[in-house]
C-alpha cells in the first residue's frame, strides 16, 4: 500500500487535466472526481481503456431534493493498483435524463434499469424490461425522498376488522358484533 498516495494523485491529476474536472484524493485507495454529465462516458472509458479501471464495483444515485438534483455515482476499481475511483455527476431532478452507459459495462444495464424505476431517471436507449422490481407501479418513483412510505401504506393497506387496537381480536369482535367466537384453542386442546 502506498503511503504517499502517489498512484491516487496520478489518476486524479490525469482526469483533472484531461477533462477539466474537480476531484479529491479522499484517502488511500479512494479517489473521487466530479464531472459534467456529458463527460461521464469519456471519463469512464478513459479510466477503463487506458488506466486499467476495468471493474465496475457499483453505481448508485442519491436524491438531493433540497438542491433539485440527483447525484449519480459510478464506482470503478483498478485491480492492479487496488484504487477505487468514484466518478460523480449531478443531473437535474425535474428533467432526470442520463446517458445510457451499459455499452461500457454490461452490468450497468441492471443498475440503470433500477434507477429508472426507483428514481425515475431516464436512460435513452436502455434495453431491458420496463419493470425490474416493481410491477404496476403508478405512484412517484419510490426511492425519491418525497415519496411518503407511511402515507402509501395507509392508502394501500387497511386493518382487518377487529385489529384496530392491540386487544385480543376475538374479544374485540365479540364486543363489536355480539357474536360469541368459539374458543378453538380450548376446543381442540389435547389436555
Amino acid at each position: 500500500m502506498s503511503n504517499d498516495l502517489v498512484l491516487e494523485n496520478e489518476i486524479l491529476n490525469l482526469i483533472k487535466s484531461a477533462f477539466n474536472a474537480e476531484g479529491n484524493v479522499i484517502k488511500s485507495r479512494r479517489v473521487e472526481v466530479f464531472v459534467k454529465k456529458d463527460q461521464v462516458s469519456s471519463v469512464l472509458l478513459f479510466a477503463k481503456e487506458q488506466r486499467g479501471y476495468i471493474h465496475l464495483s457499483h453505481s448508485t444515485c442519491i436524491d438531493w431534493i433540497e438542491e433539485g438534483e440527483f447525484e449519480l455515482i459510478y464506482s470503478i476499481l483498478s485491480p492492479k493498483d487496488k484504487i477505487m475511483l468514484y466518478v460523480k455527476t449531478r443531473i437535474d431532478r425535474d428533467n432526470p435524463v442520463m446517458e445510457n452507459l451499459d455499452g461500457i459495462w454490461h452490468q450497468l444495464n441492471t443498475y440503470e434499469r433500477e434507477m429508472r424505476e426507483m428514481y425515475g431517471i431516464e436512460f435513452p436507449g436502455l434495453i431491458g424490461d420496463k419493470e425490474f422490481c416493481l410491477e404496476d407501479w403508478d405512484e412517484i418513483p419510490p426511492m425519491r425522498r418525497d415519496f411518503d412510505t407511511v402515507e402509501f401504506a395507509r392508502k394501500t393497506f387497511y386493518q382487518r376488522p377487529g385489529r384496530e387496537d392491540a386487544k385480543d381480536v376475538r374479544k374485540t369482535l365479540t364486543e363489536q358484533s355480539g357474536e360469541k367466537i368459539p374458543d378453538f384453542a380450548t376446543k381442540y386442546s389435547r389436555e
Binding site: 424490461d129 419493470e131 425490474f132 422490481c133 416493481l134 410491477e135 419510490p142 415519496f147 412510505t149
Partner: peptide, 11 residues
C-alpha cells in the same frame, strides 16, 4: 426476473 422479495430495505 426479480421483484418477488423487494422489501425496500434501502428506503
Amino acid at each position: 426476473h426479480v421483484g418477488y422479495l423487494h422489501r425496500a430495505f434501502e428506503k
